[in-house]
Amino acid sequence: MIWELRHEFKLSLLLEIAELPRSTYYYYIKHMKDEDKYSEIRKQITDIFHENKGRYGYRRITMEMHNRGYVINHKTVLRLMNEEKIKCMVRIKKYRSYKGEVGKVAPNLLERDFSTSAPNEKWVTDVTEFSLFGRKLYLSPILDLYSSYLVSYTISEHPALSLVLNMARQALSVLSRGAEPILHSDQGWQYQHKQYQKLLKDHGIKQSMSRKGNCLDNAVIENFFGLVKSELLYMK
């Protein structure tokens, strides 16, 4: 009540000083008592954020809002999140494995075309680093772009060649007969090694590489690493 009286006094004073039109004055008086039309939306956004332990950003929260039957734009969700001071956790910088010549080993066969019509057409791989209690671990997976299925993975305390070779051998052991997928990576030194190249060639795997310093060429695996670290590691 006191809050309302103060605001009516301020508006009345503004009307006199600025010669505000009387219709504008009464418009503000009428709507001053209106409730926040986003109050329920704000609650849902906050609930979704905390239910997922801060892992969801505005895009995923927007998708979940749509799943719950709310019609809302992602820009509105972002604005409301900023007003509520909630923000998805910032991702950790990835391990960089590049050593060697630029673009001398394999062409970029993928060319950012991540669409597939069946399994085992296009695979992507990379190596990422985790820091755990003063120790470093390295994860090397292969993802199938058809369904983001984890074809194989290896974990090691060192980013050695064996980390990548063992990952590739695991994937080849479950590969359907006659399938010859493209296996895309960055220009990391492991992928430029002749032993790795020979392993792929002997099994009919077409090697593909990103352009130097262009993470968007392998965006799917980059996004996978970001989600793994944000949702399964750094929130704990």
Rank of each mutant, 00 (worst) to 15 (best):
L232R: 09
M65S: 03
E222K: 10
G213S: 12
F225G: 08
F49V: 07
G69N: 10
D36R: 05
L11Y: 11
L80H: 11
L227H: 15
V174R: 12
I92K: 15
A168N: 06
L200D: 01
L15V: 02
A18L: 14
L80C: 09
L200C: 13
G54T: 07
K122H: 05
E35Q: 12
L216P: 04
F225M: 06
K104W: 00
E4I: 14
T125W: 05
Y26E: 10
T116S: 08
E101A: 14
Q170A: 08
P21V: 01
S115V: 11
V124C: 09
Y70N: 11
S162T: 12
R55Y: 02
V174I: 15
Y25G: 07
F130Q: 01
D113N: 15
Y56V: 04
L110H: 11
L143Q: 07
E16H: 14
H203P: 01
H7Q: 15
L20Y: 09
I61S: 09
L143C: 06
A160W: 00
N223L: 02
R112H: 06
I17F: 13
G100F: 10
N223G: 09
R135S: 11
I45A: 10
R177F: 05
V105L: 02
K85V: 10
L109G: 10
N214Q: 14
K93L: 06
L132M: 13
P159H: 09
R112F: 05
T116M: 05
P181C: 07
W3L: 13
S97I: 01
K94I: 03
L143D: 07
W123I: 02
L109K: 12
Q190F: 03
P159A: 07
L20A: 08
K30L: 04
A171C: 04
L13E: 13
E157V: 05
G103C: 10
A168K: 02
K43C: 02
A168Y: 04
H66G: 00
H7W: 15
L5Y: 12
E121I: 02
Q170S: 12
R177C: 00
K37T: 06
L175E: 00
F49P: 10
E84V: 03
H193K: 02
Y191T: 04
W123Y: 11
Q170R: 13
Y138D: 06
L13A: 12
L216K: 09
L14F: 12
S156Y: 01
N52M: 04
L172S: 04
S173T: 06
G213H: 06
S185A: 13
A219F: 06
S176W: 00
V71P: 00
I182L: 12
K104H: 12
Y27F: 12
N67C: 09
S185C: 03
V228M: 15
L145D: 08
Q207E: 07
I205E: 08
M1H: 11
Y196K: 01
Y38W: 06
E121W: 02
Q190A: 13
N120S: 14
E40D: 15
K212F: 13
V151G: 01
K229E: 07
N52F: 14
S230W: 00
S148A: 06
D36L: 02
V164N: 02
K37P: 15
L11M: 15
L5F: 10
D36M: 03
Y191N: 04
